[in-house]
Design a protein around this nucleic acid. Structure first.
Lengths: 98, 98
DNA sequence: CTGCTAATTAGCAAAACTGCTAAATATAGT
DNA sequence: ACTATATTTAGCAGTTTTGCTAATTAGCAG
């Protein structure tokens, strides 16, 4: 759902997490270590990102590897760009392609 | 502030408003008429968008004309795209240009 | 100044969000 | 089974967001 994506993007810590994942997949622990907030709080941020499908999680033995999902991010960016082009028709929030 | 922009974008009604403004500037009343929510609620959504500088407001006699601010929207889209490209450096959430 | 329409501000209640600590779960190693 | 580590889930308090109705402000017409 598009709405979940924008909601997930609305918190700076979550955007930061995505920024960190640009370098490549990261373990939950390594991500959490980069922040001042408590571990459980980070865990919840990750859950929000996962719900929005902005990231995927994969168990790796003892730990969990998070990976960014660029296609969802692309869709969000495209949606924003779609809001920009002047439109003379009457079909809002849709024909973003081309 | 970047954060205000993403926060503003996190509510579906506000994204809808931006979509309506694609067609061109609109009076607050005309915008409000497109939604089921009460007038004051719409007014607040508009205020949030204005705070984030996603729209500008201009008095037009009795009424108020809202206009989309595409440059802020572009910046937001660019920020998202910047989150996508693989990065081997260590400078997150920044070098989105080029 | 009075009345009318357009829009915002105030104030309130309900819901959602954030972040914490404590407790639970999962996996690996012994 | 027991322990240690990694991560999530529960439960709670404080804050923010949302949406409503009622009241207010702003500009215009007579």
């Amino acid at each position: 759902m598009q709405n979940a994506v924008f909601k997930a993007l609305s918190h700076p810590a979550r955007r930061q997490i995505l920024a960190l994942l640009r370098k490549g997949p990261q373990l939950a622990g390594d991500l959490a270590a980069e922040f001042d907030t408590s571990w459980p709080t980070m865990s919840r941020h990750l859950a929000v990102l996962k719900d929005a499908e902005l990231v995927t999680a994969e168990r790796q033995g003892n730990q969990i590897l998070y990976r960014i999902n660029t296609s969802v991010l692309e869709d969000a960016a495209t949606a924003l760009l779609g809001l920009i082009g002047r439109d003379d028709g009457d079909d809002p929030l849709k024909e973003a392609a081309e």
